[in-house]
Simulated scan of single mutants.
Amino acid sequence: MAMDRPILLIEDNPDDEALTLRAFTKNRITNPVVVARDGVEAIDYLTGTGSHQGRDMTVMPVLILLDLKLPRIDGLEVLRRIRAEEHTAMLPVVVLTTSREIQDIQQAYRLGANSYIRKPVDYERFIHAVSQIALYWLTLNETPESAANSPY
């Protein structure tokens, strides 16, 4: 079930991480949240390697929130690797970043981002943005898994 599956938050800024987690709480999002603080940790989680060696690979994130400006491996390369692997290729990836660079937006979509959202600076707008992300991706969006498990 989607509510049991984790959200993977790939974010290196501790303030943005705390703000996102606060927004999840305020919006009553109860999914567990796994935080990866750089691109290597994100890839390790998704592939069950490195610091996430041995994790249950049958439990994949219901949603990935991906910052672009990451240490070690940047967000665009993380996105490229997510889309290159069969077991992660169809996971929903929402780029949630401060970048307004047109080349970042274009490249993210070329690499298969499902959505590109610029982080609002204002706290209330950020809370609202997270609410909208959750409403769509955790409630309304049909996934290949939900379609396969449908009784219809």
Rank of each mutant, 00 (worst) to 15 (best):
A2M: 11
K119Q: 09
E85A: 09
S99N: 11
I82P: 08
D104W: 12
Y45L: 05
T47Y: 07
I133E: 10
D122F: 14
I117A: 04
D122G: 08
V94R: 07
N31H: 02
T143F: 10
T20Q: 08
F24Q: 03
P14M: 14
L65R: 08
P14S: 15
L66E: 01
V40D: 00
L65F: 10
A148M: 04
E86M: 02
V121Y: 10
L76C: 02
E77W: 01
R118I: 14
L21V: 10
T30Q: 09
T47P: 04
I133L: 11
A18M: 07
N114K: 09
L46T: 06
V33A: 02
R37Y: 01
H87K: 04
D16R: 14
T143M: 13
E85F: 09
V34S: 05
D104C: 08
N13Q: 15
G75M: 02
M90E: 05
I73C: 09
D74V: 03
G39D: 02
D4L: 13
N114T: 05
M90V: 03
L9A: 09
V95R: 07
A42Y: 03
I127V: 05
G112Q: 12
T88V: 08
E11Y: 15
D74W: 08
G39V: 00
A18N: 12
G75Y: 01
L66D: 00
P92Q: 09
T98L: 11
R72E: 12
E77A: 01
T143K: 05
V78P: 00
T25A: 07
E17P: 00
R28Q: 05
A134N: 15
D56V: 06
W137I: 09
P144L: 10
K119R: 14
A42N: 07
E11G: 15
L91R: 03
V62I: 13
I43S: 01
E142A: 11
P32Q: 08
E101S: 13
W137S: 08
T97D: 03
E41V: 02
G75W: 07
L79H: 02
P71I: 09
T58Q: 14
P144Q: 13
Q107T: 15
N31A: 01
G50V: 11
R100C: 12
V59L: 11
S131H: 14
A23V: 04
V35L: 09
H87Q: 01
P61E: 06
A18C: 14
L135P: 07
D4S: 13
D16L: 15
V121M: 14
T58I: 11
A2Y: 02
E85N: 11
R5H: 12
D4T: 12
D44S: 09
N149R: 06
Q103W: 08
L111N: 10
D4K: 13
T143V: 04
Q53D: 13
I102H: 14
T49K: 12
H52D: 13
T47D: 06
Y116N: 03
D15R: 15
V62M: 02
V130F: 07
N27A: 05
M90I: 06
